[in-house]
Design a protein around this nucleic acid. Sequence first.
DNA 1: CTGCCATTTTACCGGC
DNA 2: GCCGGTAAAATGGCAG
Lengths: 82, 82, 82, 82
Amino acid sequence: MTDTIIAGDVLRSYIERIERLEEEKAGIADLIREIFAEAKGNGFDTAVMRQILKIRKMDPHDVAEKDELLDLYRQAIGMPVG
Amino acid sequence: MTDTIIAGDVLRSYIERIERLEEEKAGIADLIREIFAEAKGNGFDTAVMRQILKIRKMDPHDVAEKDELLDLYRQAIGMPVG
Amino acid sequence: MTDTIIAGDVLRSYIERIERLEEEKAGIADLIREIFAEAKGNGFDTAVMRQILKIRKMDPHDVAEKDELLDLYRQAIGMPVG
Amino acid sequence: MTDTIIAGDVLRSYIERIERLEEEKAGIADLIREIFAEAKGNGFDTAVMRQILKIRKMDPHDVAEKDELLDLYRQAIGMPVG
DNA sequence: CTGCCATTTTACCGGC
DNA sequence: GCCGGTAAAATGGCAG
């Protein structure tokens, strides 16, 4: 009996803590979006910026590997590698 | 020349600010994951918890959408909305 | 060597089949757009039409989801589902 | 009176034609997904395949431009261009 | 040309 | 630890 009530409280606590953190997370996502908007307003290409961020996050070895693979595939189907 | 250098500083600043915020965001995601893990350890079903969170987030939006929908149907059959 | 050539043929085949299908898909999207345009020309509100389509697509799914949700809530408070 | 009935039939016709086409479109999307799955099963990297498809769809001039921009940005923030 | 909506891509989580 | 499916974010395209 009491178990159910207590479990309910615990569950609600979990739920509310998660909701609070998700709000924080959303707030940070907003800030990031604002920075992209500002960068765009100053003439930067946000797609290229995202690419830069992705590369910096990746293991350099993996980057090289993917690049090689792309070249390999392009050659394999007879596309100029550029 | 100088243009490039200055733009480089600005760009680097944008990139680093974004990376910093993304780290924060990832940290919060970790905290959320920990709460789920703790809840799971205490016997709660995380799928159920995720559903509850989803509903609590969606419901107000859903209500608005249903209202809008009703109006749209009334339009569709040629009934005045007011 | 030969491996690369053969793999190249296979890869090119995949790529071209996908491109062909994507063209078909785009063609169908065009037809859909034409129907909307025709409907609009005949005085129908395309926004309303899109809402109707959305609802007709979502409703069965939505019903199932609500049922599932009810079960989940019963679990959450420790009630047997059956 | 009759107008409403007729309009209703016309609207339903539009809706059903669109739904039919959307089904076809979804069917084609399934086929594309299957090809990717098959390619993956044969050891191809689908992410790289998608990149190939994107490049082939883009104007070659735009591709070169984006590449140059990426290099420029990398230099500007002091990243090795690779 | 701006906002909106569909599609696509990415990250995440649970199962094997 | 990978892999498949699922939900969130982002990109692109279209109507207005």
